[in-house]
Every structure is written in C-alpha cells, then in structure tokens.
Simulated assay, not measured.
Amino acid sequence: MKKFLLFVGGLAALLILLANLGPIVLLALSVWLLYIIFKKFIRSDSTLGKIGWVILGLIVFGIAFSNIYAIIGVAAAFALYYIYKSWKKDDHYPVVGVMKDDDPFTNFEREWAELNK
C-alpha cells in the first residue's frame, strides 16, 4: 500500500512539475537577468544610465514577480526527489522484532540488522 501511495504522489508531483516547467524557466531567466542588470547598474557612472538600468530592472522584476507561482513547481520537484528517495529505501529487515533472548546467534542477527539500517 505504501508503494502505491508513493507512486500516486510521485505521479501528481510529476504532473505539477511539468505544468509549471515554463514558468520555472521564465523565473530562472528573469532572476538571472536581474542579476546582470544589478551588476550593470553598479558599474554605470552616469545618472541617466543608472535610471535606465533601474527602469529595465523594474520591468524584469515585473516579469519575475508574475512567475512567482513557479515555486509550486520547484516544491513539486523536491517532493518528487523525496518520493524517489523513499521508494528506493528498503523497509524489509531480516529480523523484525527485538527478542529478549540470551541466545548469542539471535543477538548477533539483531545487531547485524541494526547496523545495516
């Protein structure tokens, strides 16, 4: 049942990620452009140049802000990664319960299972 729920959750996360792939790319591109504009703003010596870079930065910031819901797609990508990690984790251990026995072989098997977790 756990594997089925992980599969359904992974499928939902994949669909959300694919639906938000375009906005994720546009958000990343606009953040990169904002970085470039900021660097150009710092290097500019003239007041008119700085005003131009600020106006261009505000336009690109508007584009970035309109794609802010792409964070949902990034969260879906993280969820997909954690589902993948949970899927690969093996929950089957050779010794399931802890036995209160003084048999050295039983204790060895229990300790070995604890080490392999």
Rank of each mutant, 00 (worst) to 15 (best):
A76F: 03
G9Y: 03
F61N: 10
E109M: 08
G9E: 03
K3N: 08
L34F: 06
V60P: 10
K117T: 13
L29R: 11
R43F: 04
S30Q: 04
V96L: 07
Y81F: 04
H92C: 00
K3V: 14
G62F: 10
S86N: 09
A13I: 13
V98Q: 12
I51P: 15
A19S: 14
G57N: 03
E111Q: 10
L18D: 00
W87P: 05
L18T: 08
A19T: 13
A19R: 10
D102E: 12
I63H: 03
G49H: 00
K50C: 02
I55K: 06
L15M: 07
S46T: 15
D103K: 06
Y81M: 01
A70L: 04
A79W: 10
D101I: 08
K89E: 10
A79E: 14
P23I: 11
K2R: 07
A113I: 03
G10R: 06
F65C: 14
L27Q: 12
I55P: 03
K3G: 05
L6V: 05
N67T: 05
S30H: 08
K3T: 12
L18E: 00
Y35N: 08
G73F: 03
L115S: 06
Y84D: 02
A79H: 04
G49L: 05
K50W: 05
V54M: 11
W32K: 09
P23L: 05
L15Q: 01
V74I: 07
S46D: 09
